[in-house]
């Protein structure tokens, strides 16, 4: 909007620049942990949080922009994890192929769920996608209860994957998806989705095809969640479907919680929300001796935090941040106005 877009302050306001800077910071943390400045478990936990953040971006687009509540995230994640396992571990193909196959399957699944969403809406849709997710989980469990990816079978373009390489892969994919999504939101597609969220009838009257954009929203959310599952498998490398919480309702709810806490219409909010739900727990609280002794307190603190944020800050943390910056701006403007008045008075 402003004329001097080239000034350094405005470059920082440019989303791609912000995302690249954030990516560099994330990479730096890993580099520091390689040199022993930061403990490696801290960096590992950050990588884990980023995986959930990838899933949360897709969900943010689905809930915050398209207004479609889904509880099927866990099932979509499951698709990604099992695709990686079968392609890389069982058949020995490279990770790149796993990427393509995951994309293909999740595209198909997203279209199916999108069609379902045309018939059923609101909380009903949420429960129905929960049922779908349970179907996927049961199918996967019946196929193979435990999957384990061996390090030797995990390579991308000839590069041997390990925790650290996988971390960089996660950061790259996270930044890429952030960039794609932030562009999408500011495009006609994004605006059509918001219109659809506010009123389906009005959107249709304006010539927006519900089918096209609902399908698109679900396809994107499914692909992101499946990619998250793929990254999880590459990073953590084993999963016991019958006992792990990853493919259950808990994960779907946690992602939903992360998006709501961060502010459902803010991409950076999704990271903050994921960080609160997954990051604080594994990166900070697990270091404090009191919480190490009583890990149950961590769960309680997260729960209290969720309730408080939803009750008192319905716009999420993103709204708090924007409120604060708005009040600063107001004060600045008021100050400037007062100064101008004083000047006038002097004259």
């Amino acid at each position: 909007m402003e004329n001097n877009t080239a000034s350094p302050k405005n470059i920082l306001k440019n989303p791609p620049v912000q995302i690249i800077l954030f990516g560099i910071v994330l990479c730096l943390i890993q580099v520091l942990s390689m040199n022993g400045v930061i403990s490696s478990s801290f960096a590992f936990a950050l990588g884990n949080t980023l995986i959930y953040a990838v899933m949360a971006i897709g969900f943010c687009l689905l809930l915050g922009y398209s207004g479609l509540a889904s509880l099927g995230t866990a099932g979509f994640i499951g698709i990604g994890t099992y695709a990686v396992y079968y392609i890389m571990q069982e058949n020995g193909y490279p990770l790149f192929l796993a990427f393509l196959v995951t994309l293909g399957i999740s595209l198909g699944l997203g279209v199916v769920v999108g069609f379902i969403s045309l018939r059923i809406e609101g909380i009903y849709l949420a429960i129905l996608t929960l049922g779908l997710s349970e179907i996927i989980r049961n199918v996967l469990m019946a196929i193979k209860p435990t999957i384990k990816l061996e390090l030797a079978n995990s390579r991308l373009f000839g590069i041997q994957m390990n925790d650290r390489v996988a971390y960089f892969l996660i950061v790259i994919i996270y930044c890429l998806l952030m960039w794609v999504t932030s562009n999408l939101i500011n495009s006609p597609t994004g605006r059509a989705m918001v219109a659809m969220k506010n009123s389906t009838s009005a959107a249709q009257a304006m010539g927006i095809s519900l089918m096209k954009f609902r399908l698109m929203a679900f396809v994107i959310a499914t692909v992101y969640a499946a990619l998250g599952g793929l990254l999880y498998m590459v990073y953590v490398r084993n999963l016991t479907t019958s006992s792990s919480l990853l493919l259950t309702l808990t994960t779907s709810l946690n992602i939903l919680g992360a998006v709501i806490i961060g502010g459902s219409k803010s991409l950076w909010g999704t990271f903050v929300g994921t960080f609160i739900i997954y990051g604080i727990q594994s990166m900070f609280l697990s270091r404090i001796p009191f919480f190490v002794k009583n890990p149950a307190f961590i769960t309680m603190v997260t729960g209290v935090l969720i309730v408080v944020v939803v009750m008192f800050f319905p716009g999420g943390i993103a709204q708090i941040a924007s409120n604060i910056s708005a009040s600063f701006k107001k004060r600045k403007l008021a100050g400037a106005a007062a100064a101008a008045e004083e000047k006038k008075g002097e004259e």
């Binding site: 949420a126 709810l253 149950a296 769960t299 969720i306």
Partner: peptide, 28 residues
């Protein structure tokens, strides 16, 4: 009672927060 103006999804999240609190409280 206090969160009446929270929307439906927000209420779902609140119940999920309660799940977390109870899951933490039971082992304690």
């Amino acid at each position: 009672r206090r969160g009446r103006n929270v929307n439906a999804v927000g209420k779902q999240i609140i119940t999920m927060g309660i799940v977390s609190i109870i899951f933490g409280a039971i082992p304690l």
